[in-house]
Design a protein around this nucleic acid. Structure first.
Length: 274
DNA sequence: AAACGCGCCTGCGGGC
DNA sequence: TGCCCGCAGGCGCGTT
C-alpha cells in the first residue's frame, strides 16, 4: 500500500531510469477499468513524447512530457510501476506498458485496480479535479505546527481521521498516521480540535519524522509495494504499532491494541497514547 | 458545511 | 486438504 514515502521513492527511481527518454509506443494490455477508465486516446497521445520531468503531488506520480502533456499515475492500494528490460514477459494484472527509447519497458500493474492513469495539460494540473482539493504537502516548508494547528483546531472528528484526510494533509495513509500518533503519544481517537499546542507541535514533527525516516529506509513493503526496480523497502521493520496488535509496546511493554476508525484499523498503545 | 459510511477490487489467511 | 468468508485500504461520492 504505497503512501507518500513509497511514491517519493518511485519518483526518484523514475528520474534516474527514464528521464529524457522518449515513449516509442504505449500499449493498453486490458480493457478493465481502473479507478477511472484509461482515456481512449492515451496510446495515440503518448506516442513519440519525450519525458522532460517527473514530479509528485500527494500520492500522484506526474510524468511531464513535451507538448505540455502530463501523464498522471496513481497506484491506489496495490499498483506497481516497474521499469523492466525489453525481454520482460507480461504478468497477470499488467494494464499498460510504455516502450522507451533506451530499450526499457515501463509497466503499470494493479491487481485491485484502485489506481488510475490519465492525462492533463501540464499548465492545468493545479486545477485538475484530482488535484484542486488536495491539502498541504507534509514535507513542504509550509507544513509548520501553526499551520497544522489552524487545520485541526475547528475539527470535531478524530485526529487520526483528520490527518489522513487528503483535503487537510496529503500522503499520510494508515501506516504513517498510526506511527506518528504513537511517537507523539496521542490517542488516535482524540478529537482533533482538543489537541494542545504542544501536542500539535509534536504531531507535526513526528509526521515529518516518520515520512523522512521511511524514505531513508526505502519505504515500507507490507505486501504490495516495490520500487521501480522491484527493490523492497525495510521501514516495516521499524514499526512501533502498525500491524503489531497483541505485541508488546516498544516503550512500556503493554500490549498494542487495534480498533476500527472510519473503516480502517488504528493501532495504538493504550498506556502511552492519551 | 462538516463528518461519516459505503463501495470499488483481488489476494490471502484463518477457521472449520 | 480444501473451501469459503472476511479483511485489507486510498479515494470519491452520496447522505445526514
Amino acid at each position: 500500500m504505497p503512501e507518500l514515502p513509497e511514491i517519493e521513492i518511485i519518483c526518484r527511481g523514475l528520474r534516474s531510469k527514464i528521464l529524457n527518454e522518449t515513449i516509442l509506443e504505449a500499449k493498453r494490455l486490458t480493457n478493465l477499468k481502473l479507478r477511472q477508465a484509461i482515456p481512449l486516446d492515451l496510446e495515440c497521445i503518448l506516442k513519440n513524447k519525450k519525458i522532460i520531468d517527473i514530479s509528485r503531488r500527494a500520492k500522484y506520480i506526474n510524468i511531464h512530457l513535451n507538448d505540455s502533456i502530463t501523464l498522471i499515475i496513481h497506484l491506489g492500494m496495490s499498483g506497481k510501476l516497474l521499469i523492466k528490460d525489453k525481454s520482460y514477459d507480461y504478468q497477470k494484472h499488467d494494464h499498460f506498458s510504455f516502450d522507451l527509447s533506451n530499450g526499457d519497458v515501463a509497466v503499470y500493474n494493479d491487481p485491485r485496480r484502485f489506481g488510475l492513469i490519465t492525462l492533463c495539460d501540464t499548465n492545468d494540473l493545479a486545477s485538475h479535479p484530482l488535484f484542486r482539493n488536495l491539502g498541504i504537502e507534509p514535507l513542504s516548508e509550509a507544513f509548520t505546527s501553526s499551520y497544522l494547528e489552524i487545520l485541526m483546531h475547528t475539527k470535531k472528528q478524530a485526529v487520526k481521521v483528520a490527518i489522513m484526510d487528503n483535503s487537510n494533509i496529503v500522503g499520510v495513509g494508515n501506516i504513517y498516521a498510526s506511527e506518528s500518533l504513537f511517537l507523539s503519544k496521542i490517542d488516535p481517537e482524540r478529537i482533533a480540535g482538543s489537541l494542545k499546542r504542544r501536542e500539535i507541535k509534536s504531531l507535526r514533527d513526528k509526521i515529518v519524522y516518520v515520512l523522512e525516516e521511511a524514505i531513508k529506509r526505502g519505504g515500507s513493503s507490507i505486501k504490495d509495494y516495490a520500487s521501480v526496480g522491484g527493490e523492497l523497502g525495510y521501514f516495516q521493520n521499524y514499526f512501533n504499532v502498525y500491524g503489531r496488535e497483541g505485541k508488546q509496546c516498544t516503550i512500556c511493554n503493554d500490549l498494542i491494541e487495534a480498533k476500527k476508525q472510519a473503516g480502517r484499523r488504528s493501532f495504538y498503545c493504550p498506556a502511552c497514547q492519551k
